[in-house]
Design a protein around this nucleic acid. Structure first.
Lengths: 224, 224
DNA sequence: TCCCATTTTTAGACCAAACTAAATTTGACC
DNA sequence: GGTCAAATTTAGTTTGGTCTAAAAATGGGA
């Protein structure tokens, strides 16, 4: 039983639901429509269609979640998206900020063989350029214990592991400050007033990040 | 004045017209519809739309040809298609026969920067895996003097330079016979009865090709 | 418990891109 | 030059995906 042939729009909706239901396990019509820049009524239509295909469970007025069949499709899309992002950054020299939009197109290319070859060509990477895990061909993801940078205390030394937003402006800001995935950071001060932090970046300088930026950064223990 | 945003269907039509009008400079409605597996009436509709956008010149009942603006778009699509084919074969290890269909999808990805980076990554190749020239970013193509293998005489030694068809079965046949681009071939016999040829492939064996196969092969003088 | 703002769905319309069937044009042949 | 088959266009329909506007459901606060 193949993932069947889905239209681009159907795929976009499945992926949106997957991402949005990450924490709460259900996604709302409005949240989906906002993410896809469409109207709520269009989303409702699509949900009915996807429900008929057995890809989502839609309880009207109460949100939607993926069936296991839908989850498989969504994870496969995420896999393709993150593999292509990795290719663009590592092989073609793109910066993080630029690749999201292109990968949005590339993730819809349908060829199992292409995905698997690309995966092998890149050396079966476990994480994409933003630190997000890349599902393997069976949909399994490598988990990694990360914690919010915002929770760190003064004096802690950690490594930047994950940026949980593909917002261009955020990525450009990090770039400007000399921060990249794997950067080793020492917390120099935490300001209670606004939640901002002063940091020292090894092989970089002293920087300050606002709480708004910090909320998207996750770290892991610094290497020895 | 950008190539403007075109739908996938519009792009497909432009490329079909480009390819079909290669020899005669005009393409017929039926030929286009056959190539795209649609009906003639659908093509007529599309031609009107493309004509309104100034991309084609359509004289009803008398065929269609690209305007210079349409030609630019078509050449850009050809460029993308052939660069992706090259990537798939040279980097991902695909065989010639498999890449056409995937490249048909990849050629519609819109990102100038992506195309140019891919081109550089591949070392600015002049020819794709089938021997077809790859237009550069300005649409210029590298010409190469090739002649039909079918015109060769007994005893001639030549090199396979171009296969002018992306038909799967043809490419698989060539593969089975041990022929690839660049193969050095000696003509051993030409059979007047059916136009078939007996050939010897250097670093291969003795093979026989039908006139039907030969008609798609083009050669250049053998290297010294 | 009732009310009302917010969210979501329904109803009806539009557009692009395809189709079928019918009408029209062309051009080759007698 | 007239005729007819093939090629092409026109007319009208369908499907998928979106929209706007109106109706319905939900759930928190008085």
């Amino acid at each position: 039983m193949k993932p069947a042939d889905l239209t681009r729009s159907e795929e976009d909706h499945l992926k949106a639901i997957h991402v949005l239901s990450g924490t709460r396990s259900k996604a709302s019509t409005n949240a989906i429509s906002e993410r896809l820049s469409t109207k709520a009524s269009s989303v409702t239509d699509m949900l009915r269609k996807l429900a008929e295909k057995g890809l989502v469970k839609h309880r009207p007025y109460h949100g939607v979640k993926l069936t296991s069949k839908g989850e498989v499709v969504a994870l496969h899309l995420v896999r393709k998206h993150r593999l292509w992002e990795t290719f663009l950054v590592e092989r073609l020299g793109f910066g993080w900020a630029e690749v999201h939009e292109i990968a949005e197109q590339l993730e819809h290319i349908t060829s199992e063989k292409l995905v698997d070859r690309l995966d092998a060509y890149l050396g079966h990477p476990l994480f994409d350029p933003h630190g997000d895990p890349i599902p393997d061909s069976k949909g399994r993801v490598q988990e990694r214990p990360t914690s919010p940078l915002a929770d760190c205390r003064s004096g802690e030394q950690v490594r930047l592991a994950l940026v949980d937003e593909s917002n261009d402006a955020l990525l450009i800001l990090l770039n400007d400050k000399g921060l990249r995935l794997g950067s080793v950071i020492t917390v120099e001060a935490v300001h209670a007033f606004d939640g901002s932090m002063d940091l020292r970046v090894r092989s970089g300088g002293h920087i300050t990040l606002s709480a708004q930026v910090l909320s998207h950064l996750h770290v892991e223990p610094a290497p020895k």
